Amino acid sequence: MPDILVIGAGLIGARHVAAVQDHPDCTLAGVVDPVQLDGIAAPVFRDIADVNVHVDGAIIATPTGLHASHGLQCAQRGWHMLIEKPVTATLDEARVLGHAVRTHGVRCLVGHHRRYHPSIDVLRDAILSGKIGAPVTSTLIWAMRKHDSYFNADWRRTDGSPVMINLVHDIDLLRFIFGEVTDIAALGSNAQRGSDKVESGGAVLRFESGLCATISFADTAPSPWGFEAGTAENPNIGTTGQDMWWITGTLGGIAFPSLTLWGGASDWSQPATAQTLSANKTVPLIAQLTHFCQVIAGTAEPIIDVDDAARTLKVTRDIETLLAQQILHPEDTKEKIA
Rank of each mutant, 00 (worst) to 15 (best):
A29G: 10
V31Q: 02
V32P: 11
V32D: 05
D33C: 07
P34H: 06
V35F: 15
V35W: 08
V35S: 08
L37P: 09
G39P: 09
I40T: 09
I40E: 05
A41F: 08
A42S: 01
A42L: 01
V44D: 08
F45S: 03
D47H: 01
I48Q: 06
A49L: 03
D50M: 01
H54N: 01
D56A: 13
G57M: 02
A58Q: 06
A58I: 14
I59N: 12
A61S: 04
P63H: 00
T64Q: 11
T64E: 08
T64I: 04
T64V: 04
G65M: 00
L66A: 14
A68T: 07
S69V: 15
S69F: 09
H70D: 10
H70M: 07
H70R: 11
H70N: 11
C74P: 02
C74L: 05
C74H: 05
A75Q: 03
A75K: 00
A75S: 02
A75V: 06
Q76D: 12
Q76A: 12
G78E: 00
G78T: 03
G78I: 00
W79E: 04
W79M: 05
H80E: 14
L82N: 08
I83V: 03
I83F: 02
E84A: 00
K85C: 07
P86Y: 04
A89W: 04
A89S: 05
A89M: 00
A89K: 02
T90F: 01
L91E: 01
L91V: 04
L91S: 06
D92S: 05
E93I: 00
E93S: 03
R95K: 15
V96D: 06
V96T: 06
L97V: 08
L97S: 14
G98A: 08
G98F: 06
V101C: 01
R102V: 08
R102H: 14
T103K: 10
G105V: 12
V106I: 09
V106N: 11
C108M: 06
V110R: 04
R114K: 05
R114S: 04
R114E: 06
R115S: 11
R115L: 03
Y116E: 10
Y116A: 05
H117N: 15
H117M: 03
P118G: 04
P118K: 06
I120E: 01
D121K: 05
D121H: 05
V122I: 04
L123Y: 00
L123T: 11
L123P: 04
R124K: 15
R124D: 08
D125C: 07
D125P: 03
A126Y: 07
I127T: 09
I127S: 06
L128V: 07
S129D: 12
I132N: 10
I132P: 08
G133F: 11
A134Y: 10
P135R: 01
P135L: 03
P135Y: 07
V136L: 09
V136T: 13
T137Y: 13
S138I: 08
S138P: 11
S138Q: 15
L140R: 05
W142P: 14
W142T: 15
A143I: 09
A143N: 15
M144A: 11
R145W: 12
H147T: 13
H147K: 11
D148V: 14
S149Q: 13
F151M: 08
N152I: 15
A153S: 06
A153I: 08
A153H: 10
R156K: 12
T158A: 05
T158Q: 14
T158G: 13
T158F: 13
